[in-house]
Design a binder for these strands. Sequence first.
RNA 1: GGGCGAUUAGCUCAGUUGGUUAGAGCGUUGCGUUCACAUCGCAAAAGUCGGAGGUUCGAGUCCUCUAUCGCCCACCA
Length: 890
Amino acid sequence: MENLTTKYNFEEIEAKYYNLWLKQGYFHATKDTDKKPFVIVIPPPNITGILHMGHALNNTIQDILIRYKKMSGFESLWMPGTDHAGIATQNVVERKITGDGLSRHVLGREKFLEKVWQWRQEYGSTIIRQLKRLGCACDWSRERFTLDAGYSNAVLDVFVNLYKKGLIYQGNYIINWCPRCQTALSNEEAPHKDMDGFLYYIRYPLKDSNEHIVVATTRPETMLGDTAVAVNPKDKRYKKIIGKTVILPLMNRQILIIKDDFVDPRFGTGAVKVTPAHDPNDYALGKRHGLEFVNIMHPDATLNENALDYAGQDRFKARAAIIEDLKERGLLLKVEAHKYAVGHCYRCHTIIEPYLSRQWFVKMKPLSLAAKKVVKDGKVKFYPSRWTKVYLNWMENIQDWCISRQIWWGHRLPVYYCKNCYKPDNTEEDVRQSGVIVAKTRPARCPDCGKADIVQDEDVLDTWFSSWLWPFATFGWPDKKVSEEDLKYFYPTSVLVTAQEIIFFWVARMIMAGLEFMQDIPFKDVYIHGTVRDKTGKKMSKSLGNIIDPLDIIKEYGTDALRFSLISITAMGQDVYLAKDKFELGRNFSNKIWNAARFILMNLDTKQTEGDLCIFYKQTKLSLADAWVLSRFYSTLKALNQALNNYRFNEAAGLLYEFFWHEFCDWYIELAKLNIKERNTQFVLYKILEKTLRALHPFMPFITEEIWQKLNPEAGSIMQKTWPHVQENLIDRVLEKKMTMLKEVIITIRNLRSKNNIKPKDMVEVSILAEDKKKRGILKDTQSYIEKLARVSKIAFLEVPVSFDGVSCDVASGCSIYLHINFDAAAENERIEHEINQITSNIKRKEELLKNSAFIAKAPVPVVEKENKALAELKADLKKLEAIKYAVKK
RNA sequence: GGGCGAUUAGCUCAGUUGGUUAGAGCGUUGCGUUCACAUCGCAAAAGUCGGAGGUUCGAGUCCUCUAUCGCCCACCA
């Protein structure tokens, strides 16, 4: 058996094994009807992505599950891939070619797309390489990309399918428009942020009158597109002037004062300027009242010719200019500070413009019904469960999904127009319009007029319109030949692991798509982990400069340390505030594991480690330490299984940490040193290490593999091994209690040594009074343990109280412990007095509790019994302490 | 305007169905090179569990109210 290097060189080890696992095909999963499948589809990272802590956490969790289930006998499949990330990628490449003095418009669509593919070739798999660095056991032979041919086919298929069902339509609406990206966005892509703004009060003069009506607005520049002023019909202040005409300042346009219940008389002046082409509410008002829709902006948010003198100006410059002009004319009454929520582009953070345009939409209400039901019925479960409510609330208030994007990188709409007979109108939801052909392939001629002059829609689909098919399109759906077998076996998938930010974007929509196209849920569980933030609670982002780069941590501490640290500090669904020093936890633990293994390997004799544990257990009389560590291992394993099955990862990590470090290393290995050469010790040391490595492997794949290989040079990879089986018969609570007593006695002696300033190298003599025969027996049997771990040279066991001169004493587990040393009698007395006081007050509390008839009557019997027993023990301890006090005084 | 989360030791956080005297890591203090590990060992100090009520024999845990911080959703211009 070869030993480990003195120092744990994680860099070398990590480089060694990932490729080996890959070469051996350990990550590959295929249909195997003898096994149950366990499947996770990766949340496909954007091809523009680089690994951040969120990814590191997200993928570590998935990897733990995948490896755990694989070892547990499941056919474990982790489906990997990347997302083309329409707007994000287009932005990146555009920025790049701008640097080269080009623009996409100069290049043209085809050439530009070539550049993007080129870019993808070069940089698009950065994140994949980084996931490999993290140790992810993805089945790379199945890697998918949302713009691959097969996948694109699925996307187009779905579009045509939904169009035929009447669930996709084209229509004119106010949508969220990003003036910088120059595309429409869905509601989810335009999150609102609170901003400090102003409420401007503007006078609108009444026609043929000296009077005026005052309107309040946060966006004065939109007044150029006003086509009415609205008041509440019940508002007494304005009753007289409803129906009158006002002159729109700066534009000199005549517009009407209309009434509508929508207007809140308590807000502002109770009079609203109506701009139907630039505000969703005003749009609805405009529709109700048949108002004119005046668009005053170009797509880049500069004002257009409808803005007359302001044409050409940027929207915010125009705002300032308009305010100045109104002021000059005495039409600006006042300005108040005002907080309001404004939509921002989720890709470039530019302020969204509500913009009237013709776009494609998915009707969501019909899709949401089944998606609501499966969650309500518990067929899809959220962990933690509170997200259920968030999900259902969104489903309840669902709005149609704008899916067309005015960019080039993505799936181009399978929509064709006949130049001859297509005439876009202003309708909403024109499900069928002549000259519109929706088909996966380009039609030869127009079915309405028969002419062949046909053009394809310029737009592409929302990236999420492809992502929502991920759990089944990755298997090759809808191509039956490719996907049928796999889907039957692997679908629905087992669990989706993701962050809260994309519940609406992705999780909710996948559930809808799964139910609509597969007639089944896409996954059974949804585990939502927290967001990784910096230590002040801010999201980590490049612009804030507060990023802790996982790759830096990997370089400095190692992958396993990164993984174990992250998992340890992430309680279910709770955000994690991260600082670099948190990773020391994992680094130190790696170091501990390494050194413990090194010690064991250093002392292990291979011949002594062979055999079956259960048979060995039955046939051998084990020492307390041996039986104890086995019992503790299996108790830990049992709890570990439970924690993993309930997605309690921090608890799982904590259990392993506690067992390995503070039980196995601190106690068992120290005790094992006493008889390290003996068969039993050798066997147990080997078995515990070997099994613990397996249980640790999903968390720390590299270090466990390296140690495994050295421990079992012939046994192959740890990845091929099974998860340890819980041996219930080896779990022995009584025995664990015995060990607890022994530990208490040892700790008490150490404590007395420390209090009396005895140097670690100095040996002491002790007497132990154990009136209880059983206890005395245990302590006598483990005398050598006490001597070794408490540095004791001689122990006298007493059956009855004896008084000593010159001893330092204490009570532990019902035994009195006397240290025969020179000591400070005054200090000793004070300490014992203090202990007596403490124990007396505890006894009092317990006596009162047990005198309480309500407690006796209503508390369950075992609880009362436990209290009684505890009281008896306390009383015995008190008696001993008093005896000790007496002894000391003498 | 709704919804959610957090509030526990100096710091960062655990605490599953209510059950002895509330835990960990880091930090602090004291001692320590007994050769697996100083990325270590041994020991210690440290908390009226945000506040107020309530339910209960019993509350960090359940209920109500409340304070502070944070997040999400929502068309008050």
